[in-house]
């Protein structure tokens, strides 16, 4: 279980997160929705250890990880697929996936997980020797997700996985997310595509200018008039 308690984040003079608190229960898909610049991305980056909060604490299974290094946070079971996929463009698909398992030493386990990723994304197996930068946007997203799975995470963070993808691919990516979740991985999903995110979410939080303003199950929020108006286009 991941608990974020009252965190504040500053970028110089800018107060980006103002006392954000939320909880991600094991086995759930939790989504964080909100407009551009609301603080979704900063929240994920802070929990991953890329940005340090000025206040508050972050607990993973009861352990305080607020000041833990990004490296140790990966080791403790959080894997983060950043916005814009951020694959290593001049390295091959295989090398990208191997980097996902950077902290692991169990060769057999890595080989098994590599096979599992290739089964889940057959296109990556076909292109394993190809430079990641030459893949299409959708393929890069699959690679980024596959790479994150290679660390065998307890919780998978997904930052805007549908961004820039054709509608058909968006559906496919969301199916993949559901599938990963049903095989036991907890998901924390950040999305601008609120309707898709709410459809698959067990629980959702709405973030506005650095604060959580609303929360509820995915179904509840889909019915909310405010949400419909602000995020679901009517």
């Amino acid at each position: 279980m991941l608990e974020i308690k009252n965190i504040d984040v500053h970028f110089g003079m800018i107060h980006a997160l103002k006392g954000v608190s939320f909880t991600v229960n094991d086995g759930d898909i939790v989504t964080l929705i909100g407009a551009n610049g609301a603080g979704k991305k900063t929240t994920l980056r802070t929990v991953s250890g890329l940005k340090k909060p000025t206040n508050g604490e972050i607990l993973l299974d009861g352990k305080n990880i607020t000041h833990t290094s990004a490296q140790d946070i990966v080791r403790m079971g959080i894997s983060h697929v950043p916005e814009g996929r951020r694959v290593f463009p001049t390295m091959t698909v295989l090398e990208n996936l191997e980097l996902g398992a950077f902290l692991r030493r169990d060769k057999d386990g890595i080989a098994r997980d590599l096979k599992m990723v290739f089964e889940r994304f057959p296109i990556l197996a076909d292109r394993r020797k190809q430079a990641a930068g030459t893949l299409s946007g959708g393929e890069q997203q699959m690679l980024a997700i596959g790479r994150a799975l290679m660390s065998r995470p307890k919780i998978l963070f997904l930052d805007e996985p549908s961004m820039g993808l054709a509608p058909l691919l968006v559906q496919e990516i969301f199916n993949i997310i559901k599938d990963i979740n049903s095989s036991g991985t907890t998901i924390l999903l950040v999305e601008q595509n609120a309707s898709m995110a709410l459809q698959i979410a067990d629980y959702a939080y709405v973030i506005e200018t650095g604060s959580i303003v609303l929360s509820g199950t995915g179904a509840e929020l889909m019915q909310s008039e405010d949400i419909k108006k602000a995020y679901l286009g009517g």
């Binding site: 991953s48 890329l50 990004a70 990966v74 191997e98 950077f102 902290l103």
Partner: peptide, 19 residues
């Protein structure tokens, strides 16, 4: 491999657990 990853994208490298 860590060197190449860091030179390509430092943030992404950190997310792989690279020091």
């Amino acid at each position: 491999k860590a060197m190449r990853a860091v030179s390509l994208d430092q943030d992404a490298a950190m997310l792989m657990g690279i020091n």
